[in-house]
Design a protein around this nucleic acid. Structure first.
Lengths: 167, 167
DNA sequence: TTAAACTTTCAATAATTATTGAAAGTTTAT
DNA sequence: ATAAACTTTCAATAATTATTGAAAGTTTAA
């Protein structure tokens, strides 16, 4: 496989994976493009490379910046903006895990807490609801905690040793 | 919060979480309904409880069965089918992790392997593509391995002790 | 074998989500 | 202050994905 085919395959695969996991295709592809780029890119270059509109590019770049995985760079003497993504996979995973936890997992954990805390009126269905949502709550909380610890920068040595331990 | 409100909140929250993570709302809600039900339910009961059509219920039940988290039960002397979901959260997590790994993660790891194995022609862009996709490949493989080990039934004692270790 | 009781399939439709593109907005240089 | 060079916004549209519902299929009982 030569460079261009490999590049296209990577970008399109990354886009599909994004879609499968609830992340907009354009957003995933912009990140993929920046991830393998040897230099920061302008909006124009991104539009051109991915064949997407200016508006789409602008909105998705903003989202990526919100997520903390893309940064805007201003080059002295140039008016246009340059974009680059976090190049370190560990850091990338950390940002994504942190954001998805904050936006999606934590709110669900909160709901599970509320639901599992309803008054136990002694009926079987109430008991079951409490029992099951409590189990889900505990699992979600454990998973969320362990995930965040594992991708934690300072504790990275740990996740590496854990991996060995588990093998 | 009384039972019905809590139940509705749980089902709708679970449906939304599904959507956010690329899982069809109806599929997530059927699973949620079964998860807190004290008994197996018929298609009719599921349709009624979630206000969804027969076709939708049928297709999503099949998917849940494919995923290995719902089972069809035949009651002697009754013609209609009864459905129930895995009630143990640990088992549930295990099935979901296994399936998402198999369907979505493993194929991506394969592509990353291919892409990172292209011939290094010495150009900066090729070197960067190889380096970055290789890093992603290694991370994805580690994450996939560790996730599957963690949710592994036999090794569950391990995930529990790991959690303590990480705290 | 027929009919009743059920489930599945799938084309049509609806709902949701992504994308466009042009107008409005912003910044900088002169 | 004006204009050029850019970015953002957002209503319109397109693309995708989910859902319906009725016809076709299946199974069981008589």
């Amino acid at each position: 496989m030569e460079y261009n085919k490999a590049k296209d395959k990577f970008i399109s695969t990354w886009g599909s994976l994004g879609t499968l996991w609830g992340i907009n295709k354009a957003m995933a592809q912009i990140q993929a493009l920046l991830f393998i780029s040897t230099k920061s890119l302008t909006m124009e270059e991104i539009m051109e490379a991915l064949k997407i509109s200016r508006g789409n590019t602008s909105m998705n770049l903003r989202q990526l910046i919100d997520w903390g995985i893309v940064t805007k760079e201003l080059v002295a003497g140039e008016r246009k903006e340059y974009f680059s993504t976090e190049k370190d996979v560990q850091e990338l995973a950390r940002h994504i895990a942190k954001e998805r936890s904050r936006r999606e997992i934590k709110p669900v954990i909160k709901v599970l807490k509320e639901v599992s805390s309803i008054k136990n009126d002694g009926t079987a269905k109430t008991k079951e609801l409490i029992k099951q949502t409590k189990a889900l709550h505990d699992l979600a909380e454990s998973a969320d905690t362990i995930l965040n610890k594992m991708v934690n920068k300072e504790q990275n040595w740990l996740s590496k040793s854990l991996l060995k331990l588990l093998k």
